[in-house]
């Protein structure tokens, strides 16, 4: 459902890294994703650059176009404007950080065109 964000973006949610370590969602660092992907047999990290942000057809929804991976494959996702993405070297960022902070108490930066987000893909696709 588009009505709400998944519960794990709520401040204080406990996240398990690939090595078993537990961290709160607000304490995650870029290295946590990179290191978890390194020991994953199936998943690898891609760099996905925000290329466009458009308002969606539904209130509070945005369409974000990413250039994914080295080939900058074009992928669009439709998400709530408060949906947080993890930007390399910066942390949680959303199109409406005020809403993200108000609804989930998760501190966010503003997601902008040019930001490079952490995304996942399958190792076998490489």
């Amino acid at each position: 459902s588009l009505a709400t964000l998944p519960p794990f973006f709520m401040r204080g949610s406990i996240i398990q890294l690939a090595d078993g370590e537990l961290k709160r969602v607000e304490d995650l660092k870029t290295e946590d994703f990179i290191q978890s992907a390194e020991i994953s047999s199936e998943l690898k990290i891609d760099s996905s650059t925000v290329e466009r942000i458009d308002t969606g057809q539904t209130p509070n929804v945005v369409v974000i176009q990413f250039g994914v991976g080295e080939l900058k494959a074009q992928v669009s996702v439709e998400v709530l404007m408060e949906y947080p993405f993890f930007v390399f070297g910066q942390g949680w960022s959303s199109c409406c950080p005020d809403r993200t902070t108000r609804l989930f108490e998760l501190s966010c930066a503003k997601l902008c065109v040019g930001d490079v987000c952490v995304s996942l893909t399958l190792r076998s696709l490489g």
């Binding site: 996240i15 398990q16 990413f66 996942l120």
Partner: peptide
């Protein structure tokens, strides 16, 4: 207390592969 896996938090953006 629920524990969520790290890979739930970042999007899976698989580029479309040519068949």
């Amino acid at each position: 207390v629920p524990v969520f896996p790290w890979h739930s938090l970042v999007p899976f953006l698989a580029p479309t592969q040519s068949d």
